[in-house]
Design a protein around this nucleic acid. Structure first.
Lengths: 218, 218
DNA sequence: AAATATTTTAATCAAATGATTAAAATATCA
DNA sequence: TGATATTTTAATCATTTGATTAAAATATTT
């Protein structure tokens, strides 16, 4: 008999140790689960929540549709898991930097741009996916997203206020993020092939850092 | 009997004179059609193609679902009409400026930022909608979107090459667009209420223009 | 090996949704 | 006014899709 409640994925936090599941060292087990997560991650970020069918995910994972619901109970639950993972990925790059008191403002800018472009080159679908889902369901993110609050109290914003007291820090931050993230959002429209894109994103690292710094000088 | 082919909306170009439809001066007629278009424009740009149900559009327009299919034959056709309208809206701001040989580079930057922010303040959903649909169906836009080609031959790019021969114009353009468009894409995440957002977008007009110019000086 | 638990599958269900149809209501014109 | 054309509606269809179920296959344990 099928016992769904038993090995079900009730927690939405990716940080849980997958290997520590049930008793044995059966890694075909976690492998199936991981295969589903990998597939869901790919399809969701590529097509967004509404456009992805659970059948797509199952096919991508090479498993049956029912198995997906057996493991994750619903499309929604699986999505929450993936989204939490992606948000953490985005935050994990920003937060340690903007809160690092040991870095100068210029160092923060350099590190931020470098790390963020690295992240986005590996996950080019991330920005449009996350921002699209937030817009599609703002209430679902109200609690999880206090980016403004987090930035407000950061040493990054403090340093920005010191350097340019006459300009709201948000303007500089939006520009920095815009220059960094926008190419990945408008990739299809503004860039030709994937190789030159990647190359040009490498070029942008130094360009954006340079531009951002002179923006703070005037 | 219903004769669908007759007053059907076969053309996807919004520029056609709606008033010139059929014989009479019945403006309740075109009003219904216009109501559907307005409703479709609102719902599509807000929720995207897959997430909008034709029933949503019908309800928003205050009409019956069947009437929508009577006028526009299918969800897809109606969407094509709206999308063409939105693309034209976006291009109508960019093209006349980047191709205007009478404007200096600095004047182009100022006008571009000013006009684009004005457009986006009135149509804040536009960027995420258009870019999202392009990503969802790149093939459907292959022919319509030759933005790269259009820019390549513009006087804007020529002026950029003259001013800074060592930097690929695309980098500057992406930065300019990023600073301008990104706040509207990340609105939900980075900005508080709608009023301060609009106010800050006004502030950005001068800021972006100033920043863009100094980016070209170094 | 036998018993038990877990994993996987095929078949199916129920709801949502784009589309159609035929008839009723309204307008237009002779 | 009466005939004809156009507009609008309610009811219905067919497909898609998330989810469920029960049984088969596989693994685990005793």
């Amino acid at each position: 008999m099928v016992n769904q409640k038993n090995s079900l994925y009730l927690c939405c936090c990716k940080d849980i140790d997958y290997m520590a599941k049930s008793k044995g060292t059966k890694n075909l087990d976690t492998s199936t689960e991981e295969k589903i997560i990998q597939a869901a991650s790919k399809v969701f970020t590529q097509k967004g929540y509404v456009a992805t069918r659970t059948r797509d995910i199952a096919e991508e994972a090479g498993i049956n549709l029912a198995l997906l619901n057996y493991y994750f109970r619903s499309k929604e639950k699986l999505f929450q898991l993936i989204m939490a993972e992606k948000l953490q990925l985005l935050f994990s790059v920003i937060l340690p930097i903007v809160n690092n008191d040991d870095l100068t403002l210029d160092e923060k800018i350099e590190t931020l741009v470098e790390n963020y472009i690295n992240l986005l080159v590996d996950n080019p679908d991330l920005p449009l996916f996350v921002l699209g889902e937030i817009k599609a369901n703002p209430e679902g993110f109200k609690d999880r997203l206090q980016v403004r609050k987090l930035l407000q109290n950061s040493s990054f914003v403090r340093q920005l206020r010191e350097r340019k007291p006459d300009v709201e820090p948000v303007h500089f931050i939006v520009s920095l993020l815009g220059m960094t993230v926008f190419p990945f959002i408008a990739k299809q429209v503004l860039f030709a092939d994937d190789n030159t894109f990647k190359m040009q994103m490498e070029e942008r690292k130094v360009l954006i850092a340079k531009w951002a710094k002179i923006m703070l000088e005037t």
